[in-house]
Every structure is written in structure tokens, then in C-alpha cells.
Nucleic acid binder design. Sequence first.
DNA 1: CATTTGACTTTGA
DNA 2: TTCAAAGCCAAAT
Length: 108
Amino acid sequence: MKEFFQEVYKIVARIPRGKVATYGQIAALLGNPGSARTVGWAMWEAPAHMGLPCHRVVNRLGAMAPAHTFGGEGIQRAMLEKEGVTFKPNGCVDLEKHLWDWEADYHA
DNA sequence: CATTTGACTTTGA
DNA sequence: TTCAAAGCCAAAT
């Protein structure tokens, strides 16, 4: 469903700078908590296409997509760090500090 | 038209 | 506690 993609794009576009969102939460926000994988799939199509901050979208562990997705290893991480996002020693985004509070912002 | 795959998540052993 | 398997929705082949 293309609309599903649009929903994903809209939500991702609303992620505040310096914050990150997880696939599962985005999916849940769309009403499809089980389609976390489909959310990621949608990102694959959208990227630079519409200036979508896909680098702010990570899995629930704070890990990011394969390097080639952003043009190289560390690209996504670099952009996030530039926005003020911190990383854990394990190399994942510090979700506890930078997880987007979509509940308050989007009014799910 | 049916099968497989995919930037994931959650539960079972 | 850690490891492994199933499940979910949508798109691509």
C-alpha cells in the first residue's frame, strides 16, 4: 500500500533534530505494530528523494542500516552526531536520551 | 497468481 | 542468562 509509505515518510519527516525513532514505534503509530519491517522497506524507496532524514530512523537497539544505504560506513552516525545525538560504547544510538517522544509530538 | 524476501520485533527454549 | 525460531505487513520476482 503506497499510502503506508506516505505515512512513514510523514512521520519520519516529523522527527525532531537530534532525536531518533524506531521502526517498531513508527509502525505502531501507523496502526501496524507488526509491520516494522515494512517501515524499513519504505525508507529504502524514499531517501534523498524527499529529503527524508532516514538517518534518524534506527531499529529498537539503536543500530542503523547497512553502510551502503547512506553512501558509506559511518555516514548515518556522523550525521546524527552532528545533530547532537550521542552514541553508546557499543556503537548504537543512545535511545534512552534521543528516542523521539512521538507520543507527545504526534499525538498518537 | 503464488512464492520469497526484507533498514524488524517479540516470544520460546 | 543467551541463543534460536516464528510472526507480522507489504513489495518484488
